[in-house]
Design a protein around this nucleic acid. Structure first.
Lengths: 154, 154
DNA sequence: ATAGGACAGTTTAATATTAAACGAATTAAT
DNA sequence: ATTAATTCGTTTAATATTAAACTGTCCTAT
């Protein structure tokens, strides 16, 4: 029985096993961490946008999309909903009319400042399963993983 | 300046930094890995269901939902779409009529067997950024993270 | 100057996703 | 046995998400 047929029948390589553990853990703790935000009426993407605006300042929708790894069409809707809730404000750029800059409103800033500590607490609670040394190692491995450049496929 | 105000202004603890690296890497490589499946018309959830049915055998919708960490309402739609595509088949249980068992059709089995090696190859390509020892360590850390039980919040 | 291309944002169509309300079937409690 | 609680699946309403087609806007090469 060659390797190919073994795989098809359920054999898992070291790489695949690790990936499954990685994926499962992420989905699990992501659900736990963001359920808190949901209680404040914010989705993960909405929180990501508020966080970027708060820490980086006003940004174009394109920048925001790149930052939270979401498509342009999606950003339109996320900003729509944040705008409906009065948390952000759109402003068409005068230098280059293609760009729309998104600004935090006072209401948005107030909500974010209220929620951020709770979010950080939730993250720290989840991560506290690891020692500080392990957190560092996890971060290092993930950076190495995510930074992998394409093009090494034969 | 106390710790709370430092945090609010951008200070990131070791736990938060590691979590952000973890989240960013996951979203990045997940998009790369599942873009291949999308070309075959399968979403990540649909593939997860086919995988469970193939490796574990026929299951109830509830079991499938638990397995891929998705809500009941979602499973209804995912199975709907797989059924429309002729890849799975529903069967109401006769012992307990609340349960609906989902079965792979021949067409579904054929497609899955065709795609699985490509998916495994994509996973291994991504994970190849790490050494075997690092993969093992990553898996260990993730299991520790995800297994954390609630209830240690004061 | 203008035609073509590049780029920002929107719209559309399809699927995903959840929470909550709901209906049907089963089990537990009295 | 009848009631109450639980469990499974569906439906609904809302947002997320993407790819692809589309509209404006800006830039560039001729």
């Amino acid at each position: 029985m060659d390797k190919k047929s073994i795989k098809g029948l359920g054999f898992k390589s070291r790489a695949v096993t690790s990936f499954l553990q990685y994926m499962w853990a992420y989905e699990t703790i992501k659900a736990r961490i963001f359920s808190m935000l949901n209680k404040y009426g914010l989705t993960a993407s909405q929180f990501g946008v508020l966080d970027a605006l708060f820490h980086l300042g006003s940004r174009s929708q394109r920048d925001l999309g790149t930052h939270i790894l979401k498509s342009g069409g999606n950003i339109t809707m996320v900003i729509d909903n944040l705008e409906k809730a009065g948390l952000v404000r759109r402003e068409r750029s005068v230098e280059d009319r293609r760009f729309i800059y998104v600004h935090l409103t006072d209401k948005g800033k107030k909500l974010f400042v209220e929620i951020l500590p709770l979010h950080l607490k939730a993250v720290e609670d989840e991560m506290s399963a690891l020692t500080s040394r392990e957190m560092e190692e996890l971060g290092r491995l993930c950076v190495k993983l995510g930074s992998k450049k394409g093009g090494d496929r034969k």
